[in-house]
Amino acid sequence: MHPRVSDDRPDHRAAAVPPLLVPPPGYAPAPPGAACPQACCLAPELHVLGDAPATDLDSAPNAPADPDARARYRWKVGHQASIALWQLMNGELDGALASEEGEGEAIGRTARCYDLYSVLLLYAGSCSPQRYADTVRADMAACHPAFSGQWAADYRPLPGLVRRVVNGRPREHTAPLRDAVRGNQRIHAAVAARLVPEGTSLLQEAGRNPGASPTPKETAMFDAFFAVRRGPVCASGLRSQLRYRLALARGDLLVHGLFGPNVPWAAVEPSPDLVQTFASRAVDLLVHHIDDLTAQDAARSAPAVL
């Protein structure tokens, strides 16, 4: 299915991006049904998750029609989805380190999650460099002059967990994860180089050391900017929230495409071949993960067969 470009959709039909509820830093999601006051009902408008045909897209909630508003929307949806994804990836790698039983499946799922994260990076940073400077970067600078993605509490454990798994497990078992991490690093660097050609982050502009740990206030500021709330939530509730945001991104891409006609990824920009590979698979990867998350919950909620 080819993306159908349309910039005249009324914004009153734009999908809501509710606050994201995740456990506090250092806490894992509770087991399904345990210590979860949300009763796993955290994803609104669940009909968005359906595989709606193109003819139904006009009646489905979607991204704003205005390009500036859509840039902000994608930045928020992409980051919220990434935060939920990081939580799940941390859990997978913790499980792989705790027990060799099922570690192959956990490592494989984490590798696939890294590919999804690469798509989310492209989705969040898909606007033009000028639009990024005028909207998202300006918003972050207004929040704090040194605002940085390094303030994301849920990402910080991930690189260390990856190193422990890669260094502590047979090389042939970790090959897919190593490949996915390398690809993700290239995509991350490419998006950053494209959106900020001069290569200076807000953190660096503010004279801060990029390697310094953020303060609790800065971590809280990052959460507030992306409407992240902290509290008890079970694993099913976390997956439900991730599914919803992946479905929002999928619906957006089916209508507007990844890169608009005025902001293509030029061949002279970083990693064009790898970007094109992920861009061409973006909708399929989103759908695959929506289906996989749904299947995981279905398997956990199915009654035991005696």
Rank of each mutant, 00 (worst) to 15 (best):
N209G: 01
E205K: 10
P303R: 09
D179Y: 05
G102L: 00
K217E: 15
G50V: 04
P210N: 10
T277Y: 11
Q204H: 00
D273E: 13
P170F: 02
A175K: 13
L161I: 02
A84K: 05
A227L: 14
R250K: 12
R169T: 07
G231I: 12
N262K: 12
V283Q: 14
P210T: 12
E103F: 03
L238P: 10
R186T: 07
P210Q: 09
R13V: 14
A146L: 10
V275Y: 00
Q276R: 15
V263P: 06
L120Q: 07
V165R: 08
R171L: 08
A124T: 01
G78F: 00
R109E: 07
D284V: 06
P24Q: 13
G257F: 00
H288A: 15
R72A: 09
H256L: 03
A138Y: 03
A267W: 05
V162A: 10
R243N: 13
V196G: 03
R112D: 15
P197F: 13
Q241I: 03
A142M: 05
K76N: 14
G260L: 09
R208T: 11
Q80I: 11
D291K: 08
A16M: 04
Q276W: 06
R156T: 14
P232S: 08
Q241E: 08
L93P: 00
P129K: 02
Y244K: 02
D66Q: 00
A212P: 04
A34K: 08
L248E: 06
A295Y: 06
W151C: 08
G231K: 07
Y27F: 10
S6T: 12
A65S: 15
N167T: 07
R300K: 13
R300D: 15
Q185V: 13
D11I: 04
A39K: 03
A54E: 11
V191C: 11
P214Y: 05
V17L: 07
Q80S: 11
V287L: 15
P3F: 04
M140W: 09
D51S: 07
T135A: 00
A84P: 09
L202F: 03
I83Y: 05
D7F: 06
V196F: 04
R169K: 11
G108S: 09
